[in-house]
Lab assay of single mutants.
Amino acid sequence: MQIFVKTLTGKTITLEVEPSDTIENVKAKIQDKEGIPPDQQRLIFNGKQLEDGRTLSDYNIQKDSTLHLVLR
């Protein structure tokens, strides 16, 4: 499925993911596309910070959902 990740600069990254993917996996995909190390990434969905060990389906993230990427 496709999800979107919006950065603070207003750029939107499109990712191909599975609901069973962990947040860690998603961060690795963002690193592949953008070169941002996962330990600098914080992903936010519906105002909640997403934890590495959880999956997209844990957070009820579905296709065409938009996550927000904050760098630390």
Rank of each mutant, 00 (worst) to 15 (best):
L56N: 01
T7N: 10
Q49S: 08
G10A: 11
I3V: 10
K29R: 08
V26R: 00
H68E: 11
K27V: 08
K29P: 00
E18P: 12
P37F: 08
T66H: 15
N46D: 08
L50S: 01
D39V: 08
Y59M: 04
S65P: 01
D58I: 15
G35L: 11
K33V: 09
L67D: 01
G47N: 03
Y59P: 00
I44M: 15
V17N: 06
T14Q: 08
D52P: 08
L71H: 05
N25Q: 06
I30L: 06
D39H: 09
E18A: 10
D52G: 07
G35R: 13
T12E: 10
A28D: 13
T9M: 13
E24A: 08
P37K: 08
V5K: 00
L67Q: 01
I44K: 13
E34W: 03
I3M: 15
Q31G: 10
R54I: 04
R42I: 14
S20P: 05
T14M: 12
N46M: 06
F4P: 03
K6I: 09
R54F: 12
K6E: 06
D64N: 03
T55E: 11
L15Q: 01
L43T: 01
N60H: 15
G47I: 07
N60Y: 08
E18S: 08
R54K: 02
I44W: 13
E24N: 14
P37D: 14
I36M: 06
D21F: 12
G10F: 02
Q41E: 02
H68W: 08
T14I: 03
I36V: 02
K11I: 12
I61N: 00
F4M: 11
V17D: 01
Q49K: 10
I44H: 08
V5Y: 02
T9K: 07
H68V: 02
E24R: 12
K29L: 09
Q41W: 11
K48I: 10
D21S: 08
I23A: 12
N25T: 02
P19A: 12
T55G: 04
T12W: 10
G47E: 06
I61K: 00
Y59D: 02
L15A: 06
T9Q: 11
L8I: 11
